[in-house]
Every structure is written in C-alpha cells, then in structure tokens.
Design a protein around this nucleic acid. Structure first.
Length: 509
RNA sequence: CGGGCUGUGGCUCAGCUUGGUAGAGCGCCUGGUUCGGGACCAGGAGGCCGUGGGUUCAAAUCCCACCAGCCCGACCA
C-alpha cells in the first residue's frame, strides 16, 4: 500500500499486462484519435494529425529531393480499369467498397434509398495503380517521356474485417508513389532508392530501426514482381511493416497500355514501380516508443517539442513567471533544431497540480520545462525528458538551457533509437533447429499468452508449403528475405533441404 | 463471413435471476481553499437503460427480431 502511488502508471493496463489494450488506452490518453460511429473508421485528432503532418512534410521533402512531384488522381476507379490486372483484382476483391448508385430517393416508407444505378460501378480506390496507369498510358509515347516520377497524398479504402486504430482502419491516409521507367534496371533501382529513402526516414525521423528485404511470393503485393519491405519490431516483439516499395515489372503497363517507342524505334511496355507509407506509422510509433505512462514521441516528429509549464503558487508571482516563460518560449522559437524552428508551447491553462504535467507526459512531449518563483531567483529552469523516468527532473541555468535545447532534443532522439534497436536486437535470434523455432514462438501460457517470440533468423528452402505450415501452426510468417547476398549455403530447418539463405520470421500486425 | 460475449449519463460499470418507470466512481460546470508531482471541500448539470415489436395494470429487468461493438478464426498497409 505504501508504495502504491510510487508505482502508479498513467496508463492502465501496463504493457506487460495487456499490450493491445494498453495500445488503445495510449491512443485515447494522448488524444491521437478515437473510433468514429462509422464502422472501421477513425477520427484523427489534432495531436495525431500533427504527427502525420510532420511525417508528410518530411517525406515530401525527401521525395522532392529525389525528383518526384505530387499530383492527384480520382478517388473512384471504374470497375473495368480495376479488373485489368488479374492478380491485382484477386488480391483486393474481398475488401473493395463499390459505388453503385448516384442519388437518394425517398421510398414509400419515407426512408432514403439509393436510386439511379450506375451502368459501370466505381471502386473506391484501395490503391491507385490502375487509375494512374490509365493516365500514364496517355502521357507516355516515347522513351523521352520517361521516367515519370509522381507521388500522391490521398485517402484509400480497404474494407477490413477487424479494424484497429491506425493499424488497420477501413479508410486510411497514405502516400503512394507511382513511377514509369524505360528499363527494368532503372525501375528496380527506383524500388531500391525508395526503400533506402524510407529506411532513412524511419531511422532518422521516427527513431525506428528496421530490417529490410523482399517479401515472399505469398506476402507480396498483388500484381507485383517483387515487393520490398521495411519491418520493425514493436514492444510486444511482433513485426510491423513500416512501408513497402514494389517493382511491378511490366504487369501493370501491359494491363493499362503504358507503351512507348524505345531507342530502337520499337513499341515497348514501360517498367513501373509503386511505393507507400501510411498513417499506420503513427500506430507504429505508439508501440515502438510508448511506455506505461503513455506516448513517447521522438523530437523530430513531435507536434510540440518543448512544453513550458509555469509554476505560480502565489498570485503575486504569476505575472513574473508567465513573462519569464514567454521569454524562454520566444527564444526557443527562434532556435533551429534539424533545420526548422523548435515547436514550443507555454501551457498557461488554469489547471491545478500535476494534472497539466501528466497530460503532456501522456501525449509524449519530448521535453517539459517548469519555471517557477524559485527558478526566477536562480535564473534557472527545471527540465524533464520524456525518455527518462517521469519523476526525474534536472535543474539547469536558463541561458544554458536555451543554448543547449537542440542538443538535448538530439540526445532524446538518439536515445529512443538506441533503446529501440537494443530491444530489437535482444529479441532477434539465429535459430538452427525446428524445435528451437517452435519453442521460440510458443507462449508458456497459451490461455493468456505472455509477450514472447521476436524475430527468428532461420534457413528456409523457399517453398510455399513450409510457409503455410508454419503460419498454420504458429501464426508466424516470413517478414523479409534479406537482400544482402551473403549466401552461405545451408539446410532448411524445417525440411532439411538445401537453403540459400536465412530469412526473417515473426508474428506480425 | 463463421463461433463466443456484450450493449444502462462523456468514460468504466452496478441494477436484470426474484418486473413497481435509475445508481456509483471517474469526468464535466459553479464557488472557495490549493498549485514545485495525477489536490481538497461544498453545491450542480447530465440518461425516453442499443432499436423495433411482444407479454403485463406495470419492462432497464421476461420473450422475439434486428442493429452495433468486443474477442477468437479466415484477410490485410
């Protein structure tokens, strides 16, 4: 009893008690998003949307720097377009929202009902390869028109059976890049370029370490020749896909008629790619860095990086304290951190006690500053880093703090990455026998599985049957086939057959 | 779409078995004391009990249907 307050966490349950429930509670407590009345759809609140806007701004800059430009294509895709690529339709058929009518009429019971059926139904885009392909087919005549390097920021709809906030919602936001190239080599290079760009983005901005690689045949994008992926490990040791980059070969060019006259004067199909990152990354951040007191945001992605909390116990002191807070805020706002002005907020709301402080803890603000009468006397500030225990607090001369703020933010950013990487590496195993593999992925308490498993690096013979078997037995799948060609021959741990390489296995989101 | 569970103020839930037209905690509002670690006291607002039908003098409570949500499976960024 005596230490019950000492061990109290802001989020109930704790991660080790019930991870999925913890995840939902963090999203609620941090005011990132909430479920809406529309099944499977969510309302993204300002704090959550602010994170997404930062991702957009940062990624967009990277796309531009590599020669890509933004455009916008229709939300509705004629069914006939969509159906052009066989594997593609098959892959998405079960989760398409379809618009069949163009207006509402009042029926005999006074209820609204759809009327005026469309001759050709429209699919609400689950992805835009086919509708964009239709435009590209018109734009591409000659090899001189290539490459086409376009990105679109959009919403898409995939009618999922089991939605979860950010991780899997019926409607979600993303960017989708769609490019056309003259040669296979160029298109493959583009796929790799984007994979590397994504990896840099999640590492440097989100403090998320990933393994990259190719998807197996069964896991790749419907219609793609090759799907490259970034796989992160979150704190329940499951894998989450942080982004994908697809080499589409000539499949979609053939389906959409993207043809050009090549340097030899012959008609040839273009080589296309597509790649995307989604609002799922917000959920990834929660599960990657969050703790039992709520969200923990890497400084580079936080909508507010520093919050200043005025402490004014006595009425007489208030004006002076607020003035000091504003002054610090103003100076910080003129200070640059990774090239942009620091986002500071003075929380002057009239809320008592630690309530305010806890609110910002739960929201994951990287740095909290307290300024009170005692600080005014000493000309100092109290600072708390979100990457450190919530109760720890340091005092620092005001001048020094203002000067060192960017450096402190950098140090938080680095600490989060280091912690995440350490966690992943500690839960990544080289596994050399089927028994060890099954042990690794089997919880000790099957009735209420504890957090277990992780990433297993194990040899595989390349067969679909083995994949299906493992998925069936353990719900474990191949997350990535590493690209680095350090091919030491060995034996598949499941079949004993020849195996060219180790692949990464895990349970996944 | 199959199996299980659940729908009662903003949130979490009690009440239902043994019908008699609503309660708690948290949150919210007002006033005061507080404020350097989730404060306290006093007062107050807010619910046609998921929807429709049935049984009954009377339904949150019993019966039927529907709808929605959660968990498990199949699918997925």
């Amino acid at each position: 009893m005596s230490n019950s307050t000492a061990t109290k966490t802001a989020i109930t349950p704790r991660r080790d008690e019930d991870f999925p429930e913890w995840y939902q509670q963090v999203i609620r407590a941090a005011e990132l998003a909430e479920p809406s009345d529309v099944r499977g759809c969510m309302v993204i609140r300002p704090w959550g949307y602010g994170i997404w806007e930062n991702m957009q701004r940062q990624l967009d800059g990277m796309f531009r720097a590599t020669g890509h430009r933004n455009a916008y294509f229709p939300l509705f895709i004629p069914l006939s377009y969509f159906a052009k690529e066989a594997e593609h339709v098959e892959g998405f058929a079960k989760e398409c929202a379809v618009v069949t009518h163009t207006r509402l009429e009042v029926d005999e019971n006074g209820r609204m009902k759809p009327a005026s059926p469309l001759t050709e139904p429209l699919v609400v885009r689950p992805t835009s390869e086919t509708i964009i392909g239709a435009s590209y087919a018109k734009w591409v005549q000659s090899y001189r028109d290539l490459p086409i390097l376009i990105n679109q920021w959009a919403n898409v709809v995939r009618w999922e059976m089991r939605p979860r906030l950010f991780l899997r919602t019926t409607e979600f936001l993303w960017q989708e890049g769609h490019t056309v190239h003259e040669t296979e080599t160029e298109a493959r290079a583009e796929t790799r370029l984007i994979l590397d760009l994504y990896e840099r983005f999640v590492r440097d901005h989100l403090a998320v370490p990933v393994f990259t690689g190719a998807k197996s045949e069964s896991e790749k994008f419907p219609g793609a020749v090759e799907t490259l992926t970034l796989e992160a490990m979150v704190q329940d040791r499951k894998a989450i896909q942080a982004g994908t980059s697809h080499f589409l070969g000539q499949n979609f060019a053939r389906a959409s008629g993207i043809q050009f006259q090549n340097r030899e004067g012959k008609q040839e199909f273009g080589w296309t790619t597509s790649w995307g990152m989604t609002t799922r990354l917000v959920g990834t951040l929660v599960m990657m860095h969050g703790d039992d007191d709520g969200l923990v945001l890497p400084p580079r992605i936080a909508p507010t990086q520093i919050v200043i909390l005025p402490i004014a116990p006595k009425e007489q002191a208030r004006a002076a304290v607020l003035e000091a807070c504003d002054k610090v805020a103003e100076r910080l706002g003129k200070t640059r951190y990774v090239g942009v002005p620091i986002e500071v907020l003075v929380d002057r709301r009239d809320l008592g006690g630690g309530v305010k402080n806890w609110e910002w803890i739960k929201k994951g603000v990287p740095l909290r500053i307290e300024i009170g009468p005692r600080d005014l006397e000493k000309n100092s500030v109290e600072l708390s880093r979100r990457d450190q225990p919530v109760k720890s607090k340091d005092s620092m001369p005001m001048e020094e703090f203002v000067a060192r703020a960017p450096e402190i933010l950098t140090s938080i950013q680095d600490a989060l990455y280091a912690r995440a990487k350490k966690f992943r590496d500690a839960n990544t195993r080289v596994i050399n026998s089927k028994k060890d593999f099954y042990d690794f992925f089997t919880p000790k308490n099957p009735a209420k599985p504890e957090i277990h498993g992780g990433f297993a690096l194990a040899r595989w013979n390349g067969s679909r049957e083995i994949e299906d078997q493992i998925k069936n037995d353990l719900k474990v799948t191949i997350r990535a086939i590493p690209l680095d060609d350090s091919s030491e021959q060995g034996q598949c741990i499941f079949s004993g057959e020849a195996s060219a390489r180790r692949v990464i296995w895990a349970k996944s989101y």
